[in-house]
């Protein structure tokens, strides 16, 4: 009898475990679904955390003039520059409208980064070093570049929003 009860309990536990696993699977699927990230919130946190004075907002016109990124390809943005040194810090965080737009934006930012490397190489060692350590981040439709002396810290802050 005891064995029967034990068996029933074990089966019950097993069923609950499977149910639990099933639940975990669901949440996992949800986690893989595209997140909506508030890029303005990240921007605000960066400005506070790094004591950024007088950031210049990169609106649609400026994104076009600076990077060739068109307003049609941008769903949301938290991009800005900060005037420091010869080359300003360029913080670009963009949610593209779709996958193709994200790829296009990534290519344009990469071109800009390559340009910064060539321009700074001969006379601005600090900016050249920053450019060499800088990368273009893509995460789904989100594309980002942190050309800044705080680049890696900004990357970490940015990526936390995707966890």
């Amino acid at each position: 009898m005891i064995k029967k009860i034990t068996a029933i309990l074990m089966v019950a536990i097993m069923i609950l475990s499977f149910a639990s696993c099933g639940g975990a699977g669901d949440s996992g699927e949800k986690a893989e679904a595209p997140k909506t990230i508030d890029l303005q919130a990240i921007k605000a946190e960066m400005i506070t955390q790094f004591n950024i004075d007088s950031p210049i907002d990169l609106d649609n016109d400026k994104l076009l003039n600076q990077y060739g990124i068109t307003a049609e390809s941008v769903k949301s943005s938290g991009s800005f520059i900060v005037l420091t040194g010869i080359f300003p810090a360029e913080i670009v965080m963009i949610e593209a409208v779709d996958e193709n737009a994200a790829k296009e934006i990534k290519d344009k930012l990469q071109a800009r980064l390559d340009d910064l490397k060539v321009q700074s190489q001969s006379y601005d060692a600090e900016s050249y070093s920053i450019a060499q350590n800088c990368s273009i981040f893509t995460n789904g439709n989100y594309v980002a570049m942190f050309f800044s002396e705080h680049g890696a810290e900004m990357e970490n802050l940015y990526l936390k929003y995707f966890e």
Binding site: K106, Q110, L113, Q132, N133, C134, S135, I136, F137, T138, N139, L159, F162, E163
Partner: peptide
């Protein structure tokens, strides 16, 4: 987060 995003870090 790291591997899928790095494009040019050298």
């Amino acid at each position: 987060s790291v591997s899928a995003t790095i494009v040019t870090t050298t």
